[in-house]
Design a protein around this nucleic acid. Structure first.
Lengths: 226, 226
DNA sequence: GGCTTTTCCGACCCATGGGTCTATAATAAA
DNA sequence: TTTATTATAGACCCATGGGTCGGAAAAGCC
């Protein structure tokens, strides 16, 4: 039943994943540590063996969520060679996550937002830890940008701005995803993202003609459902 | 201290207003009935004299919030004569509520969203009561539309669609407000609303030339901050 | 087979906070 | 002034759920 040496990292990850599922279903305060332990088939005390508090567990769960995104992103980037295509991978992956319109995704996003906004929200208290949650994806994007520069596809002078560009892109994708999830009727996610990517590429591409390579349709703005 | 006969309606409203303030500050579960009672300068039991449960109180608070919007809307509509101007009043008022970027507004909106989405959310349980929350504003808009028709400004054939049009307008304003609050940087609320109103008016106006009367600037789309 | 270290968990603790009960204060009416 | 009625709140109840503790079970090591 109880092997003497356990891979703690693995165990923490497993518990966090189960917690993530429940938090996504019921929200933070309606999910009890007991339920998480039950779902994991272990005792509540065991959960507390690996996490100091419920808040820690929640934070770890969200971290796990973001890490999943990050590693999928790394995967996708690895699979493409063209820097433009690699940049596109970020947008594609975002759409893959949002598109299924899984309410869990929306619930989790709201929960994160809530805990960032509320006086005593968990992410409010740990603002200093939040950076590192985004750091992974950010660096992936930065690397793509740098690679693009060295390959002569992106303008050399953006080199000093890679971090800002990465942040802007990821923040935009976060924002537009949330919006899209909240009101599915009003936003054509693909068009919106296309629109942003166009502007971004126009700014950073050495040869704007390359734009046509990925842009499949004219990004006319349409907000209202037909 | 305690007069024998109290205006219950008034008292309910007063308590709901105080509750609203606290809910907006801390969110539902972090606001305790005790705090509400303290803030109101009354005992907790007194609160329970007027509300059966905390959930009832929350619901009443949100109702109060929406009622405030509704009565301000009624006010503004009364003050204008032109049907187009009256329709505009809805958009104007929405902007007035959202513009100050009061975090409370965002927090309340999120809380409502949350309780509509979560498995055991308060608004989930009372879906049947939700209609009546929106009914007031909806009917104000419907009346404006009907008035516009009878004055020959709006097309007669929209008469059968007034309710759908009203719902669409109010839902759009809800959605775009939320979006605007969430990511202040990306959305020019005025332009977005302008854009919607243009389309709406184009659809319902008898004489499209009247459009220029209210449209002050070309609604070019700009998403990215300059 | 002992001995030690690590893992696990059932039982417990206790603060919290939603909700109730009841005695008391207020006051309109007689 | 008395009385009936209503308003109020302090004290209480108790379920809930986060968090702790101490001991048992497992397993590596000799």
């Amino acid at each position: 039943m109880s092997p003497k040496y356990v891979d703690k990292k693995e165990r923490i990850k497993a518990i966090a994943q189960i917690a993530l599922k429940l938090f996504a279903q019921r929200g933070y305060s309606a999910t009890h540590v007991n339920q998480i332990a039950d779902e994991a088939g272990i005792g509540k005390s065991t959960v507390y063996e690996y996490f100091k508090t419920k808040e820690d567990l929640f934070f770890a769960a969200i971290k796990e969520w973001m890490f999943q995104f990050e590693s999928q992103l790394a995967e996708q980037i690895k699979d493409r060679k063209d820097p433009i295509e690699k940049l596109n991978a970020v947008a594609d992956l975002t759409m893959q996550w949002v598109e299924p319109m899984d309410p869990s995704t929306l619930r989790l996003s709201l929960e994160i937002l809530r805990h960032s906004l509320m006086e005593n929200g968990i992410f409010r208290k740990r603002r200093h830890l939040m950076k590192e949650l985004h750091a992974g994806s950010k660096h992936l994007v930065i690397d793509v940008l740098l690679e693009g520069i060295s390959k002569g596809v992106f303008k050399p002078k953006i080199a000093q701005d890679t971090e800002n560009i990465a942040i802007n892109l990821l923040a935009y994708l976060d924002g537009i995803s949330l919006h899209s999830m909240i009101s599915e009727n009003y936003i054509d996610l693909k068009r919106q993202i296309n629109f942003y990517m166009q502007h971004l590429l126009q700014t950073i591409l050495v040869d704007p003609d390359l734009l046509t390579r990925f842009q499949t349709e004219p990004a006319q703005q349409r907000f209202l459902p037909a």
